[in-house]
Design a protein around this nucleic acid. Sequence first.
DNA 1: CTAGATTTCTTAGAGGCACTAAGGAAACAT
DNA 2: ATGTTTCCTTAGTGCCTCTAAGAAATCTAG
Lengths: 238, 238
Amino acid sequence: MSAHTSRRQRLRQATLEEIHTAARKLLVEQGSAAVTINAVARQVGMSGPALYHYYASHDELVGAVTADFFRELAAAMEQARDGHADASLGERILAVCRAMRAWSTAHPAEFGWIFASPITPHNRRPDSVRHQAALRFEQVLLDLMVELWRTRPFPVPDLADLPASLREQLTAYSATLDGRLPPEAAHVFLSCWTRLYGLLCMEVLHQLDFAYTDMEPVYEQCLRDLAATLGLDSHAPA
Amino acid sequence: MSAHTSRRQRLRQATLEEIHTAARKLLVEQGSAAVTINAVARQVGMSGPALYHYYASHDELVGAVTADFFRELAAAMEQARDGHADASLGERILAVCRAMRAWSTAHPAEFGWIFASPITPHNRRPDSVRHQAALRFEQVLLDLMVELWRTRPFPVPDLADLPASLREQLTAYSATLDGRLPPEAAHVFLSCWTRLYGLLCMEVLHQLDFAYTDMEPVYEQCLRDLAATLGLDSHAPA
DNA sequence: CTAGATTTCTTAGAGGCACTAAGGAAACAT
DNA sequence: ATGTTTCCTTAGTGCCTCTAAGAAATCTAG
């Protein structure tokens, strides 16, 4: 309860950081299969079972490290956003999207871990650290899109043109956003998100290797398409 | 060399099938982690090490089963194509895309296994069964797009409008297709492929659960977009 | 038809994994 | 100073992949 952090708490915190560092090192150098409780413990200089005083299970360790990666990714995107605070909203959105890919290509192992590792039941719980960090990540672009919608609404399809079941889902999702985006704007946001995120996902999972050796211009082309969709390319600053 | 299959060969073939069936059963009922050499062997009724007479390693077994799934998926798509032989090419393309998702939603465990399981070095080799089966899968839609391009060319961007590095990659890829699609048409094909496949990938990896509970109308909406891109929605049959 | 080679399977075992149990030692709180 | 909490140890269970050595069944060739 006290603001004072005891010696024990400080030591524990330091050990936790050491554990995360060791796990990440193993992931980057030897792949996700090498991130075992035993190997991590060896790396930090304690014997296997000792690690259970920090995480109750292998799943929990994985979730904690994954949350770290999400937070780092989100922070990179937030930094890009804040670093272009004086630029137009459109440029800020593009900068954030580029930061998203930049982090992923600079940290392919971590990025692959985030997406390709199956989400265990424990980490699917909405109150898990992993889930919370994933939300923060998703939030960055969502917030910008909300602001864009407020200040300079982008073109949206007519709700009546969408099939009923899609309309219902969009309405429900819009409600979870406290109506900050109406359903048809949520549809546009989700379309953009899907294309960006899907493209990154496929790059990481090497599903496009048969055609592309360098995905950077492919991603840039995708960004140009999205900018057009959102009306960002007209020269008036948003 | 003889066309005659010996008794031993027949027995071996039957055992191989039994192994694949057992592995798939374990995957579907207990998840990918349950597909171990030992568990599969138990299921088939032999002891662990015996399975090494059929596959040299766990990786190889995984690759063989994955190839099965790819082949089944490709077959489902080919069947949709051939089952609509009298329909317009546009309808055939849409039928194939729907078959692709239909198989995936009917077999979520298998589909997830295909994409989310990391491709081990052994299975990355171009001569691996996995790779071969993956090629056949990709080929189905590519062939239809080639035919579409031949009979009713779809709109393409001007190559000069694409960045140089993208142009080079598209040219190289076009060459691997023996020029059946020029670079700018290959770009359109790859864009469509990326959006379809990326959407499925995200559905399988549950990356859109925060917004959608039923992806079917989302996929249909994506198909409508692609149809428009390819000029399939004009009523003249392609 | 029989003797050797091949294939298929067994058990035994090495080394690693996640995780539990039981206990010692240090740090802390009272 | 005493009792509690925390941290870490070793020992052990049962799983895993994969190797080794050998038995039994099957095929092949003289």
